[in-house]
Amino acid sequence: MIEKRATAGVTVNGRKLAGYIAKFDNPTRIGDFTEVIRRGAFAASLSAGRDILALSDHDTSRVLGRTRSGTLTLAEDATGLAFALELPDTQAGRDLAALAERGDLGGCSFAFNVPKGGDYWTGNTRELRNVDLDEVSIVQSRPAYPDTEVHLRSLQPQSQLALMRYWLDTCR
């Protein structure tokens, strides 16, 4: 069964989204239980080299990017699952850029499966220790994980490009 989780936080400055799809070690309430994503939860998915899609609101008809083409970059760091996404010049991409500029985006989300042994329960608390990442999404609604970040960055000027390259290099 594919599960979906969402996160929040948006700032604006151009046509490239960057931030965190998920942050580690921050408990959040999911229905009648608490969930915590542990460091390394996405490592196996990322090292498997699968093509991960970036979508708008989990809608497969609104593809924003993908790892295979290099328009989506994902990396785990000490904080969580970091991402950088080049927004396409499509209606969905333009709409997201406009919403981000206005501060109207809800945040990020991700869909996943939990392989056998990938989670651990203590009472009503679930630790996600290993997940099979299915896709990541930029969402317009209220996210499940309110503590992550989305930043809209310009593809220009060069100083911002240098900052993005530095940020991506430190996430790898």
Rank of each mutant, 00 (worst) to 15 (best):
T34D: 15
V63S: 01
N113F: 12
N26G: 06
T28S: 05
V63L: 13
D32N: 12
F33G: 04
G106I: 06
R50Y: 02
A18H: 11
R29W: 02
I37E: 02
P88Q: 15
G103L: 07
A97I: 13
L105M: 08
L96S: 02
G9E: 10
G19K: 10
A54R: 03
F24A: 05
D104T: 00
G80R: 08
G65L: 13
L46D: 03
G19Q: 10
F33K: 13
D25L: 02
A82H: 02
D32R: 09
E35Y: 01
A43L: 10
L74Y: 08
L17I: 06
G80S: 09
N26A: 08
F83K: 08
G49K: 04
T34H: 11
R62V: 06
I52W: 01
K23H: 09
L87G: 08
L17Q: 07
R29M: 10
D104V: 00
A98Y: 04
N113A: 15
G31C: 00
L72S: 11
L87R: 04
R94S: 15
D57E: 13
V63F: 04
T11G: 11
T11P: 00
L74W: 08
T90L: 04
A97R: 15
A82R: 07
G93S: 05
F42R: 10
L55S: 03
L74D: 06
L99H: 10
G70K: 09
S47D: 11
A75C: 11
L105K: 08
R38V: 08
T34K: 12
D25Q: 06
L55R: 02
D104N: 02
L72Y: 11
L85W: 02
G107Q: 06
G103I: 04
G9T: 10
V63Q: 10
R66I: 01
R102D: 13
D89V: 09
P27Y: 00
A82D: 00
P27R: 03
D104R: 03
L17Y: 09
D104P: 00
E35D: 04
D59K: 08
V114Y: 04
E76D: 12
L105F: 01
E101A: 15
F42M: 06
L99Q: 13
D104M: 02
G80W: 01
N13G: 14
L53S: 08
F24C: 03
A111G: 13
R39H: 14
K23Q: 14
L72V: 12
R29Q: 13
A98M: 09
A111H: 04
D51A: 09
T71K: 11
F112S: 06
A22N: 12
G31Y: 01
R38L: 08
A43W: 00
P88L: 14
T11M: 06
P27S: 02
N113H: 12
R66L: 04
L53M: 07
Q91R: 14
A75F: 05
Y20M: 12
A78K: 12
A100K: 01
L64V: 10
A100E: 09
R29V: 13
S56A: 14
A44T: 08
L74I: 10
V10M: 12
F112A: 08
A54C: 06
T79A: 13
L81G: 02
G49F: 09
A43V: 05
D32I: 10
L53W: 03
V10S: 14
S61F: 07
V63M: 07
R39T: 15
D57W: 02
A111L: 00
T34N: 14
G80I: 09
R62I: 04
N113P: 00
L105G: 09
R66W: 02
A97E: 14
